[in-house]
Amino acid sequence: MKTIVYQSFRTERVPAWITACMATVKAWAQAQGFDYRFYDDAFLARAPDWFRAKAQHAICPVTDLARLVVAKELLAEGWQRSIWVDADMLVFDPDALQITAESGFALCHELWLFTDPTGTRRVIHRVNNSVAVFCAGSLHLDFFIDACARIGRQREVVGKLDVGTNFFSQLRQILPFPLLDNVGLLSPAFMAEIVAAQPVAVAEYMRALPAPLASVNLCGSLQGQTLQGVVAEEGLFEAVVERLLGSGGEVLNGLRR
């Protein structure tokens, strides 16, 4: 199946860990026999000016819409399947990352663990589009593009998750669609546990997942922020990338056993 993998990021002041992540995606695409295309910041212009203004120039919602528009462009160019992969996605077990969808679309399973105000541990299953697969002839791609625009027009400000995780998670409650279950997501707190070799919450997370992981999204939009007492500084991301690649993901998947 003629397939193209595409990514986007700026071309100046690129963190070394982002470069490493994208290199793993490109290598995976080549090993699968897929074409690969990189877009610079001009990619963001695929979202209309008015939408970018309502997003207050935040990257996440703009790329949520832009990746859909570009998917449509690529399928129109003749590829039978397009696969968007976030720039902060690290593929550490490329043989296990198999895209089997040959029609329609597929997104990613997302799991969050947290403690509610009563002290009870909760597990929430959601959907994200850090990897977004669309096949030629999909009935949903135009709908998603239109829905993102409609959501944008109804809001004074388009929030970080409004046309991505929130939209797709709510949609899947009424419209079942396939999810990739071996693509994970690591918060800064989880990354800090991995680096410290004290994976308490991470172990709980891994056991709650439906399958071992082949790749993880490292939440690059959080770099520079402090969450749960953890500073998401560049060195943390670099250390996690080194640990995951050096172990082939065993520092995570080994916790399931």
Results as ranks from 00 to 15, higher is better:
100 T>C: 00
200 V>W: 14
197 A>T: 07
253 N>G: 03
253 N>D: 13
223 Q>R: 09
204 E>W: 07
172 R>I: 05
101 A>K: 02
17 W>E: 13
231 V>Q: 07
117 P>E: 04
46 R>I: 13
163 V>Q: 01
173 Q>T: 14
108 C>T: 05
246 G>S: 13
47 A>R: 02
143 F>M: 14
2 K>W: 06
204 E>K: 05
115 T>H: 06
210 P>G: 00
10 R>N: 08
29 A>V: 03
192 A>F: 03
142 D>F: 06
110 E>P: 11
144 F>W: 13
127 V>I: 07
124 I>P: 12
216 V>N: 10
124 I>C: 08
229 G>S: 11
52 R>D: 12
57 H>Y: 08
240 V>S: 05
57 H>S: 15
38 F>H: 11
59 I>W: 03
188 P>N: 09
97 L>P: 09
18 I>T: 06
145 I>E: 07
25 V>A: 08
91 V>N: 12
161 L>R: 09
175 L>I: 07
85 V>Q: 02
107 L>W: 12
20 A>C: 12
158 V>G: 15
152 G>R: 02
166 N>G: 14
43 F>E: 14
112 W>N: 12
202 V>R: 01
144 F>Y: 01
256 R>P: 01
50 W>V: 05
48 P>F: 11
165 T>M: 09
60 C>G: 03
94 P>L: 00
98 Q>D: 15
28 W>M: 14
16 A>Q: 14
97 L>I: 06
121 R>M: 06
111 L>E: 08
204 E>H: 00
236 L>S: 03
229 G>K: 00
220 G>T: 03
228 Q>H: 08
73 E>Y: 06
33 G>T: 06
22 M>N: 04
198 Q>D: 15
167 F>E: 15
121 R>F: 13
132 A>N: 01
239 A>S: 11
